[in-house]
Amino acid sequence: MIDAELWSLFVNAALVNNFVLAYFLGICPFLGVSSRIDSAARMGVAVTFVMLIASLCAFGLHRMLTLIDARYLELIAFIVVIASTVQLVEMFVRKVSPALFEALGLYLPLITTNCAILAVALFQTQRGYGLLECVVFALGAGVGFTLALVLMAGIREKLALGAVPDAARGVAITLLLAGILSLAFMGFAGVGVET
């Protein structure tokens, strides 16, 4: 595998096909945790972290299930493994670095129901990525997620001072902004290769 190909895979996952703005994955935390920049950044780091681990687990699981010819169990295996990984990571972080645990707080358990994590596992399986590609893809997806979350939080912090009509407050205005961001991100089309 050439470095340039890995780089374009990363750029593709992070910018061109941004998980939040192009694939609509992880919209719930995107709407929920994007009102302040610092919490948005922490959430992004937590998600990237879990994505990496889940991606590695999913790679191994896929190999194993193909070996025993039980592909139909894949979805069930993925979701259970992701849920238990999150739990394990939570315990591990609490033991090793209480400071980081404090920083991530409630966000770690919430990640279990984040569809972006499951999507990383499903996409890499569908596209038949190798181990190295999986890691790069998961990293790209995580960085893209963090970027979208932090950008939105920045806009919403400014928005708190603006005059927004009552009916548009909350979900509606955030969706409108996400639409504009999504159009802006389309400008990245052509930077990476299509997958």
Binding site: A167, V171, L183
Partner: peptide, 25 residues
């Protein structure tokens, strides 16, 4: 064409939520 792009999805849903809030109000 924008309606078929991801951005259009956000716009359409935002409009739907707005309309709902307005009627509900």
């Amino acid at each position: 064409v924008v309606m078929l792009l991801p951005g259009g999805g956000f716009f359409a849903l935002a409009a739907l939520v707005l309309a709902f809030r307005w009627v509900q109000g």
